[in-house]
Every structure is written in structure tokens, then in C-alpha cells.
């Protein structure tokens, strides 16, 4: 399985070129076995409860599972961005991320916001230091940090900032809770999982941790977002009839096969 959680979705429905590019990006991604892709919608400022999810699945190969993601750009800690599970807009997206250039918002995101991903602006210099104490809280809460590499491919200056930010992040988190994503604007900026591992090694991770950044960690992000959205206080979730039946059926089948086995041994 291969994950890429940041593919920008065209902001206006009339953007034909954007859709064409998006399609090509998905074609490119579908070459690398089965993949899970999150189409990203960015909102600057408060998330209104009345907004609908604008992301529609794009026509692509069935190997690719498409999710939707909301990125909130937040720069003021006193502002209420509406990031809680009672907000229907937030719940309409599969993943919730925050991007900030303010240290206080960053600290609050690490310690208390109900989000899945903290996205670091990798194409410019981070205006604050990444502190162990702040990031430690995020690690405890299983919030993940995202490094997007496409800007670094596009531009030499951005590459320098990408390495600077990524290396700092890796040193402070000791390589834990990091995910790689592309944020690609065209298909040529997508890189294969193997090349991504080489990139991960170059920012100071080891092979296994670099691999986790595009597989295992991303799976955990999905699990986390599930507990945030579909459960009540992360304890109880209500399963619809259909899936309950499926579970029952599977259980019955398992029981039957076990019975058959035990009969054989008798």
C-alpha cells in the first residue's frame, strides 16, 4: 500500500486545466501498486458549519482509493476556527490538517486541537523553532507531521528550506510521527515510493522509518481520523446495519470453518 495525503483539489469547478492535471496525477500514482490518496481542500480562516465538502471523486483507476482532506490555514490563536467534532463541515472530510506560520497556533495545535495532521510549510523558512516540549505533546497525542516534497522539486530555494525544516523536524521528533506527501501540482512531481525512501534517508531517517513515513504512519493517521469522526468520545462507534451484517456473516463463516476443522481432527 502506498499513501499520499496531499493532492491539491482545484478550487473552482470551472478549472478545466486543474482537473486535467489532477487526473494525470492520479494516473501517475496508480502505477505504484494500490494507493490511498487524499484530495486536499484548503480553507483560510474559520471553518463555517454550513460549508459543504466540495470534493468529488475523480475518475481514475480502481486501484486508487480517494479520500478528502481539509487543510485549515490558521494564524491567530485567539480566533475560533471551529475545529471540533460537532462541526458538520469538519466531519464531512476524511482527514483534517492545520497549517500555520504562528508559533502559538502551532503550540496549540500540538497540545489541544482535534486534528490529524500538522502540515509544515516546507517551501519557506519556518518563522519559529520546533521545540522538543511542544512536539512531544503532539507525539503523545498521535498527531502527525507532514512534509510535502513537491515544492522542493520545483524550486532550488524551496529545496533548501525543505531540507532545513525536514531535518529539524526529524531531529526533534527522533523520526517518529512523520508522513511524506507530495502536494504536487502536476504529474511529473510525483515520485515513486522507492525514491521517497531515498529522500527519507537523506533527511536523516533510517530505511525502516523512511518506509513507515509513506505506509505505516499514514495508516495510523487514517485510524486516528476514524476515532475522531465516527466515535463518541473515541469510545463507542455506531455501526450501520449493512456493515454489522457483514461482520456477522464473516463471524459465522469463521465459526463454520473452525467447526469443520475440529470435526476433521476428531
Amino acid at each position: 500500500m502506498f499513501y499520499d495525503f496531499n493532492i491539491p483539489y482545484p478550487t473552482s469547478a470551472a478549472d478545466r486545466v486543474g482537473y486535467e492535471n489532477l487526473k494525470k496525477i492520479l494516473v501517475q500514482l496508480s502505477k505504484y501498486r494500490r494507493g490511498v490518496v487524499a484530495l486536499n481542500h484548503t480553507v483560510v480562516g474559520k471553518v463555517n458549519a454550513s460549508q459543504a465538502n466540495p470534493i468529488l471523486p475523480v475518475e481514475a483507476s480502481p486501484d486508487i482509493q480517494q479520500l478528502s482532506r481539509l487543510t485549515v490555514v490558521a494564524d491567530d490563536v485567539t480566533h475560533n476556527y471551529g475545529l471540533h467534532s460537532n462541526n458538520p463541515t469538519v466531519n464531512a472530510f476524511d482527514l483534517l490538517a492545520i497549517r500555520t506560520s504562528n508559533e502559538k497556533v502551532f503550540a496549540a495545535a500540538c497540545s489541544s486541537y482535534e486534528i490529524d495532521i500538522i502540515s509544515l510549510e516546507c517551501s519557506s523558512r519556518l518563522p519559529f523553532f520546533l521545540k522538543g516540549s511542544t512536539l512531544g505533546q503532539a507525539l503523545d497525542r498521535e498527531v502527525y507531521f507532514e512534509i510535502s516534497y513537491a515544492a522542493g522539486i520545483r524550486d532550488q530555494n524551496a529545496r533548501r528550506h525543505l531540507y532545513n525544516n525536514a531535518k529539524r523536524l526529524v531531529t526533534v521528533t527522533k523520526g517518529k510521527n512523520i508522513i511524506f506527501s507530495s502536494e504536487a501540482l502536476n504529474a511529473l512531481e510525483i515520485r515513486s515510493p522507492h525514491d521517497l525512501i531515498a529522500f527519507g534517508v537523506s533527511i536523516g531517517l533510517n530505511q525502516a522509518k523512511a518506509k513507515d513515513c509513506i505506509t505505516e504512519n499514514c495508516r495510523r493517521v487514517l485510524k486516528r481520523s476514524e476515532t475522531r469522526r465516527v466515535t463518541h468520545k473515541a469510545v463507542i462507534s455506531v455501526v450501520s446495519d449493512k456493515s454489522a451484517e457483514a461482520v456477522k456473516k464473516r463471524k459465522n463463516e469463521a465459526d463454520n470453518s473452525q467447526n469443520a476443522k475440529s470435526r476433521k481432527t476428531q
Partner: peptide
């Protein structure tokens, strides 16, 4: 060889024609 791999990662064109290189 790590240097080569990283450089390959960031290549976006060869002689003006846009492309990418996979290992």
C-alpha cells in the same frame, strides 16, 4: 551513492524536456 539517489530525486528535466527519473 546516496548523493546520486538524492540528485536523481530532484531532477525535473533533461535537456529542456520535462521528465522524471525512477530508480
Amino acid at each position: 551513492h546516496q548523493m546520486l539517489l538524492v540528485s536523481l530525486f530532484f531532477i525535473k528535466e533533461i535537456n529542456g524536456s520535462p521528465c522524471y527519473i525512477t530508480v
